[in-house]
Design a binder for these strands. Structure first.
Length: 746
DNA sequence: GGACGAACTTAGCACCTCCGCA
DNA sequence: TGCGGAGGTGCTAAGTTCGTCC
């Protein structure tokens, strides 16, 4: 990915102009969006599907149907026990494992027969600030009604964040804060009955509130480990019953069983509503979905649920509507549940099915690039971009959302054309992540894009004005049931990973193989434009590693100088090139390195001294009869530093090195070789760090790369799966771990 | 056939934990 | 052994897709 893309990310606004509504002059001849019945293969959900379930002993064992017809899952039926050695902690012979992925996937959109759960956990009620912690307005402390104080606290706790510095965030927060203030009472000058009107954000001083919450955070951090452990245990115990549910009698983990706490909406990019008050959700707003004839969880005392449903065609356990965008929030099962595993499995099988159609689809869209009908030509061009660049479909967005686009919603200003066939894409995609790519495209694609940008179109106009995702997807369904634009992303990601893995030679250490695996993963992440913010400390830590490399090279320089000092004839034996780097340092450079090395050594001694004294202090408090270290002790310890300083100065002045009598040329050469190894590995890790600084590998690993590829790699290359999948991922992908062998192919 | 909404997947960030290095 | 930082996890925003309604 280009550096430019990264830089632009920092200011997520990018340089992309917002589409003026006046030019929303679309002649979108959208085809019918009326859809037929869901294809069986897609609407493919079923009951009795748990991964690590605790079987309900009261129920008869479920009948297990083994698939034979579907070649895609043939591997699943042929797993040998000994191949399960790297199965992520799941016992190979575990009879408790419900192997739903080996069962008949025929389905009728029923997700469960019985469902039992304990509802959701609500966030704790607001705790008032201590009396001495107040918002200051115009320099005066003010008393706020408790409702308004809570909102002020939301902002006050985060004044050190980038969000809080965003003017839109501030304006939205302040607007809602004033509204809460007007409905809940008025602000008083603290300790008086005098009202004060809060009208200007700039006159608000949240620093006391911030300091209070910061203290709370630090106090929590500083708790003794035993207390932390106890608190965690208490929390776990209180939450235990919400963490699991029973789906068709099998115990399943629940995902987000906590209702989202109130706060300020943290919209990404230039979201017009960022900073608005996200209201506290009351039980009266929450709808539960649960099986019939089971105990309905009690709402919190004095409250009622909005509704209790028994809809077994959906997988959510609870839902409510949030107040900012009117979106529905759901409580689902956890990623490691059978229900989610099943839909993951189906997603990847769908992508694999595309293999059988992709050539035909490509041939067709290549032909259609010259179609007379504009809509067909646009569709073919969009298909080309989705297939080659892994773009998202790109649905239309409203004015009350951040201005981001995907393929179908690309606008004039997002695509720059440089003849003969170079296209520059520059737009903000999902999460306002900048997509910046220069690509050489087919001549006809280039010509088409020129046509789609022709006058009278200008900035703000859609490139694909005859197209939207529903038209595109409807066309795709004619090739394969359930095929949508999104499937191409999964297909291309997994296909790329397979190709990359095929190129890795099965040699070297486990660590080397993991590096190669991650490099393959990185190719996929780059394809999908998965980025992450460069850590604030990144530059600093890179500089630190660079210094470390420089010092290693300097150490090598000294060793080689010593060899020459011991035996000036050595270049004849080892070759002149061996000593070439003894000329790499001039006096200025050496001085700088010496200074750094001496300072660090001094710092180390002083830190150790302080630490030792702290320990002694603690021992004394515990009643031990020990004396604190004195300034003289420190002086004594610092002698090592003084000696080092003198030794280096002498080297600089005379060019002569102090060599211990026990040293020999052979020993020094061995040390040089060791340093070479260290320099190489440090440089490699630095490169890895820099290559990965802006690329997020996890998103593609979690969502796009068929996990069976990773399992195959683990087994074929004898790399423990723990090196590729975290514990959570091993749980999420239990189905893949149990169904892929070393020969599995996407 | 467009608007809207439900249901689900995909996504990055923030916080926490734990491991390796000095 | 203590500390910093990498890696892991939870949270929730932001997408896609598809069905319904008018």
């Amino acid at each position: 990915m280009s550096t430019t893309a990264v830089e632009a990310r920092k200011s997520s606004s990018g340089n992309v102009s917002k589409k003026p509504k006046s030019v929303a002059n679309k002649a979108k001849t959208a085809a019918s969006t009326k859809r037929g019945t869901k294809p069986a293969s897609q609407a493919n959900t079923k009951k009795n599907n748990a991964v690590k379930e605790e079987p309900d002993k009261t129920r008869p064992a479920k009948k297990r149907k083994v698939l034979k017809a579907d070649p895609a899952v043939d591997n699943a039926t042929e797993v040998k026990q000994e191949e399960l050695v790297v199965d992520g902690g799941l016992k190979a012979d575990d009879e408790d494992i419900h192997r739903w992925w080996e069962e008949d996937p025929n389905d009728h959109s029923v997700k469960w027969e019985t469902l039992e759960h304990n509802g959701v956990i609500f966030p704790p009620p607001y705790e008032k600030l201590p009396d001495d912690v107040k918002l200051k307005y115009d320099g005066k402390k003010v008393d706020l009604p408790v409702e308004a104080e809570e909102v002020a606290g939301f902002y006050g706790a985060m004044i050190n964040t980038d969000h809080a510095k965003n003017p839109v965030f501030q304006a939205n927060f302040f607007g809602d804060f004033k509204e809460v203030l007007s409905t809940s009472g008025r602000a008083l000058i603290s300790g008086t009955s005098k009202f004060i009107e809060i009208e200007s954000f700039d006159k608000c001083d949240f620093s006391d509130i911030f300091a209070y919450y910061e203290d709370q955070r630090n106090a929590k951090k500083a708790l003794p480990p035993a207390v932390k452990k106890r608190l965690k245990q208490e929390k776990d115990e209180a939450e235990e019953k919400y963490k699991t549910c029973y789906l068709d009698g099998r115990k399943q983990p629940v995902g987000n069983f906590r209702v989202e706490p109130p706060g300020l909406f943290r919209g990404r990019g230039q979201h017009p509503k960022t900073g608005k008050l996200k209201a506290r959700v009351q039980p009266e707003q929450v709808t539960l979905n649960i099986g019939k004839d089971v105990k309905i969880p009690e709402p919190p005392a004095g409250h009622n649920w909005s509704e209790v449903r028994h809809d077994n065609t959906v997988s959510w356990l609870a839902m409510w509507k949030e107040n900012i965008n009117g979106n529905t929030k759901y409580v689902f099962l956890s990623q490691s549940s059978s229900l989610k595993g099943m839909s993951d499995f189906k997603k990847f099988e769908k992508a694999r099915e595309l293999k059988n159609h992709v050539e035909r689809i490509r041939n067709d869209y290549r032909k259609e690039l010259t179609d007379e009908k504009m809509q067909v030509r646009q569709r073919a061009t969009a298909m080309y971009l989705i297939d080659r660049l892994a773009l998202r479909a790109g649905g239309e967005k409203g004015d009350d959302e951040a201005d981001t686009v995907g393929c179908c919603s690309l606008r004039y200003e997002h695509v720059d054309l440089q003849p003969p066939n170079l296209v520059t894409f520059d737009f903000l995609g999902k999460d306002s992540i900048r997509y910046f790519q220069q690509v050489e495209v087919d001549e006809q694609v280039f010509t088409n894009l020129q046509i789609f940008k022709k006058e009278p179109k200008g900035p703000g106009d859609d490139i694909f004005d005859r197209l939207d995702p529903s038209i595109l997807n409807k066309h795709l369904q004619s090739y394969m049931p359930g095929l949508t634009a999104k499937v191409f992303r999964t297909y291309n990601a997994s296909h790329t990973m397979q190709k990359q893995l095929d190129q890795i030679p099965n040699v070297g250490t486990v660590a080397e193989k993991v590096v190669a695996f991650n490099a393959a993963n990185r190719e996929v992440a780059i394809l999908c434009n998965h980025q992450r913010t460069v850590a604030k400390s990144h530059e600093q830590s890179v500089a630190k590693i660079e210094e470390r490399v420089e010092e290693l090279v300097w150490k090598k320089y000294r060793l080689k100088k010593m060899i020459l000092q011991l035996d000036p004839e050595k270049p004849k034996v080892l070759g002149k090139s061996y000593f070439a780097d003894t000329k790499a340092f001039n006096k200025t450079k050496l001085k700088a390195i010496h200074k750094r090395v001496v300072e660090r050594e001094q710092e180390k001694v002083e830190k150790k001294f302080a630490r030792d004294n702290e320990k002694i202090k603690a021992d004394r408090e515990a009643g031990e009869d020990v004396k604190l270290l004195t300034k003289d002790d420190l002086k004594e310890r610092l002698k090592v530093v003084t000696n080092l300083k003198e030794e280096l100065q002498k080297e600089l002045d005379t060019g002569e090195f102090e060599i211990k009598s026990s040293q020999t040329c052979e020993k020094l050469e061995a040390q040089v070789a060791k340093l070479d190894d260290r320099i190489l590995s440090t440089r490699l890790s630095l490169k890895d760090k820099q290559d990965n600084s802006t690329v997020a590998l996890s998103t593609s690993k979690i969502n796009y790369i068929d996990p069976r590829l990773s399992v195959m790699f683990s087994k074929k290359f004898e790399v423990p799966l723990e090196k590729l999948f975290t514990k959570t991922l091993r749980e999420k992908f239990a189905w893949a771990i149990h169904s892929a062998d070393k020969d599995w192919q996407f």
